[in-house]
Design a protein around this nucleic acid. Sequence first.
DNA 1: ACCGCCAATCAAAGCGCTTCGATTATACGC
DNA 2: GCGTATAATCGAAGCGCTTTGATTGGCGGT
Lengths: 341, 341
Amino acid sequence: MPTIYDVAKESGFSLATVSNVLNDGPRPVRPETRRRILEVVNRLNYHPNAVARGLARQRTNMLGIYYGVVDSPSIAINAYSAGVLQGVLTAATEAMYNVTHVTLPWRDAEESLAPFRDRRSDGILVVAPPTDSDLMPALCSLRLPLVAISWPPEQGNIPTVDVDDVAGANLVMDHLLGLGHRRIAHLMGHSNLISAEVRRNVYQERLIAAGIEPRPEYLLPGLYDTKSGYENTLRLLALPEPPTAIFAGNDEIAFGVLEAARERGVAVPEQLSVIGVDDRPPAAFTTPPLTTLRQPFQRVGEEAARLLIQRIAGDAVPAVLHLFPPELVERGSTTAPFAGS
Amino acid sequence: MPTIYDVAKESGFSLATVSNVLNDGPRPVRPETRRRILEVVNRLNYHPNAVARGLARQRTNMLGIYYGVVDSPSIAINAYSAGVLQGVLTAATEAMYNVTHVTLPWRDAEESLAPFRDRRSDGILVVAPPTDSDLMPALCSLRLPLVAISWPPEQGNIPTVDVDDVAGANLVMDHLLGLGHRRIAHLMGHSNLISAEVRRNVYQERLIAAGIEPRPEYLLPGLYDTKSGYENTLRLLALPEPPTAIFAGNDEIAFGVLEAARERGVAVPEQLSVIGVDDRPPAAFTTPPLTTLRQPFQRVGEEAARLLIQRIAGDAVPAVLHLFPPELVERGSTTAPFAGS
DNA sequence: ACCGCCAATCAAAGCGCTTCGATTATACGC
DNA sequence: GCGTATAATCGAAGCGCTTTGATTGGCGGT
């Protein structure tokens, strides 16, 4: 591989001039000189070595990304992570950044975070860190520019971007309450994720605001998967007074709900309304098609990457919460409750 | 951040000695010396700068990974990518490698592949490259150690690891044929993916071997998603002689099949047997629970990363195909065809 | 008392780039 | 035609590490 030194020798100019041309540097350069240097660059098929550049510049143009989601296939098995990653990659690439990925289940800072430190990532994106682990403190102690996705804004004072879960949960509750439901259950998913917490709070507040006493047996934590949705629904249906509507923490959970209902002979939506979150591709093709909340994950990822890159560039990015609104997709799995229930 | 120079000064030894200790280098070192150096390392909380090291060693301990899957949310929306990635990360981390990720829809070599070249990745993993694009030639021309996942072995002469799709497809056909089906359709997914090709071939060969003439209207390409499965199934069911069994290219497709069948009032498995591929979590919770092929994606990813790392280490890795066998998970969506059909 | 060896350590060059003070060439004003 | 500001280019140091030939000191052998 040719080096900048080869380009200099071949073109007859100095390293400094070549470098200046290559980087559209601050020093003026005669057009003819630029032309000749670029000609050599092309002829030799020269590309700057990013490692050397990183060392010299003390800047790698690398973003680290860490997924806090702790459970097994921690990455990207869900629409959430995949969409976010897609957005991050898009925005990063646009700004000439690349992304390194060190997502393994969290054990300790040294294993999971050291790569970011040692490889001199310019900044870190952290996605959905659990609120009950020491991941965030460890991350902060790296003293690198940090932007979080899905994280309680009051903690740690870092810029955060997220889907507007308050708005989302309100959309769901508007819909269900508006339909006339009063016995509404919530399968919230991982209770240590901020989104889950936020939605639970809205769920409870809206119930109370509607003059409905929240029942603890209607609020079930679990995992964000079909199995959990299935099992929890079985539990709910076995209640002396089962709910007339279930607000599932995501679509995977909702698939499990649908399944359990079918198995128990409970008609959806006639006897049980079901609403999911995410609008995963299969959601449009369940029976009945799933009413759900479409989440702008990709935009969240893009925004997060952009903010981080701004911060790296030195712009002051206030530690505020950037929210993107979800959207209710009404399909066939929700309706007004039976008069009799 | 302290540098190795600080450690040297603080401990009173030379750079060379410190470096030798840090790397368990080839030169002998007095135990007392080692102790004192390490003590300083700890006290200063020194960590080698991987960028500088990369420059000096001409080796970055970085793997690049590129997902060839071209369609929109190209990464990780499916079980395939997610499992592979998980495996890759696990094996890479174990070997002290990190992974950089540049997955955007393929446009041209410069945009997608340049980062690997310029950042001096030690090697590249390519996942499911489309057979009809110029991605692979471009990748090869980088002249970096390369390991492919899901790629026709006869092309390019590179080590490849994959799920044993021949075995898998045979398992499926054994099952369906064994049940007595003769009108078997196949929704193959992206026809430009090698797995899809392989399965189609087995599908056709087994049909012929069983004395069944393959019908072109039973072999439908499409996308690996629910929508595609749904639409293609509608098409199949509208045929004068609809199939009694559908072999779906993956579970997402199979979900669509199930849905279309339900909508058309076709009983599964009584009137239509359905079999998927992947064993996605929701597969166990459909109605009926989906018979499917469980695929060892994670092991594929791990093996690929290990092979690549071996190659980088200089071990000769033959350009052979490493196959991992899938496993048939029999659930309720398949049965013998109606006598009448 | 001397030679040769090996263990232990050091000094310096080099990896490929950026940066910035220094230097030389060019243009302008009067 | 001379001084001076500016354009254009160069030289050299430095980023933080590795590597290797060179150096030193202590030991056994004779």
